[in-house]
Amino acid sequence: MSLSDLTFFFVVALTIGSALYVVTSQKLVYSAMALFFTLLGIAGLFVFLMADFIAGTQIVIYVGGILVLIVFGIMLTNRISDVRLSHTSMQRGVGGVVVLLIFAGLYKMISSAPWYLESASAPESSVKGIGKLLMIEYLLPFEVASVLLLAALVGAAMLSRKSKS
């Protein structure tokens, strides 16, 4: 087993292990903290797919943005206004069956799909390719997404504004 295999299995174990902890932990803060390692692990998987830019984006958006907001929300409700926060996993049996079914379906699909295999060499820079695709081929979805985000931003500013009554 080569070093990159070892690293790969370490990253996979980190991702799956911490993801398991996210759903089984009773304390919400611990779940959020485990999510931190899950997201880092996913960024690591992107590195293995030679998508370095996506890995960076994953960290900026999910760790630096979304996870911070989640922890922020927990802090505001839990420690400041003394709401007891705990979550338990309910109906583990049914959930387990559903998960197994999804896993079997995915496994069947992945093992039977004809994958397009390219000789493994890292592209010169993935950023340029992504930029060109976003600006030429997928310009419309890109612009629509940005308008959607702008609308969300204006909506959030509207909601948080003091009413003038």
């Binding site: 830019f53 960076g56 984006t57 960290i59 630096g64 943005g65 911070v68 922890v71 820079s125």
Partner: peptide, 19 residues
Amino acid sequence: NIGVFFLLAVGSVGVIGII
């Protein structure tokens, strides 16, 4: 390859520690 972007990305990890 993503040098500057990497620096910005890693910088945002520290916030989690502070919180």
